[in-house]
Simulated assay, not measured.
Amino acid sequence: MAQKEFILTYEGLKKLENDLEYLKTVKRREIAERIKVAREFGDISENAEYDEAKNEQAFTEGKIVEIEHKLKIAKVIDDDDIDTDTVSIGATVKVKDMEFDEECKFVIVGSTEADPYKDKISNESPIGEALLGKKVGDVVVVEIPDGNISYEILKISKN
């Protein structure tokens, strides 16, 4: 079975690498210290602090494996790869909401670094999918739970 590649911008790659470094160094050390302290309480069979620390250790180790896997299969989108003629992953797209006559911008990113609060939308989201491959002047109609929303593409740029 082919593995799904994780598409990341350089910024997203750096964030994942920093998260991994934090988990491997700081978080592991904190959890080891909590386990050591919890063991000093005596009988670990009925030690809630010990159980909680071991559960957190297992979760953290799982997260480390997950991030390492993502980094192994990541495809990093370089600024040179970003096309400003058509919407592509990594591009910043300025659009006009046709219904409300408002302008907004989206950065199209891979699903692992999507953050709607920072205007970063996934290439797999309904809006991201609709925008991909379109050009300035195109109008896209996106099906959303409440109906449809139309955007006119005003500008495509690199960050």
Rank of each mutant, 00 (worst) to 15 (best):
146 D>L: 15
76 V>E: 04
121 I>A: 11
106 F>W: 11
67 I>A: 09
69 H>S: 11
102 E>A: 07
66 E>W: 12
101 D>W: 10
126 P>E: 07
110 G>C: 05
129 E>L: 10
135 K>A: 00
117 Y>E: 11
58 A>Q: 02
133 G>P: 00
134 K>C: 01
55 N>I: 00
77 I>A: 06
83 D>W: 13
130 A>P: 02
141 V>C: 14
134 K>P: 00
145 P>T: 05
100 F>P: 07
136 V>K: 15
63 K>S: 11
123 N>M: 13
137 G>L: 00
82 I>Q: 09
126 P>M: 05
94 K>T: 12
132 L>F: 04
111 S>H: 14
106 F>D: 06
91 A>F: 03
72 K>H: 08
102 E>N: 08
103 E>S: 02
140 V>Y: 12
109 V>M: 03
73 I>Q: 14
100 F>T: 11
108 I>Q: 03
134 K>G: 02
144 I>R: 01
63 K>Y: 06
60 T>D: 12
140 V>A: 13
129 E>I: 05
81 D>Y: 08
83 D>N: 15
53 A>V: 02
143 E>D: 07
72 K>L: 08
61 E>N: 06
143 E>K: 02
71 L>Q: 14
130 A>Q: 08
138 D>M: 02
121 I>H: 10
142 V>F: 09
54 K>Q: 13
121 I>P: 10
139 V>K: 10
101 D>C: 10
90 G>D: 13
87 V>H: 05
81 D>T: 06
108 I>W: 06
56 E>C: 04
147 G>T: 08
123 N>P: 05
140 V>N: 13
109 V>S: 05
136 V>E: 15
73 I>M: 11
97 D>I: 08
81 D>K: 08
88 S>T: 15
131 L>E: 12
76 V>L: 05
119 D>S: 14
115 D>S: 14
72 K>R: 12
93 V>D: 11
60 T>R: 07
64 I>H: 04
116 P>D: 10
110 G>I: 03
120 K>S: 07
68 E>I: 00
56 E>R: 06
128 G>T: 02
123 N>V: 12
114 A>L: 04
132 L>A: 05
57 Q>R: 14
120 K>D: 09
63 K>R: 09
72 K>E: 12
146 D>R: 13
103 E>K: 01
126 P>G: 02
147 G>L: 04
108 I>P: 02
97 D>F: 08
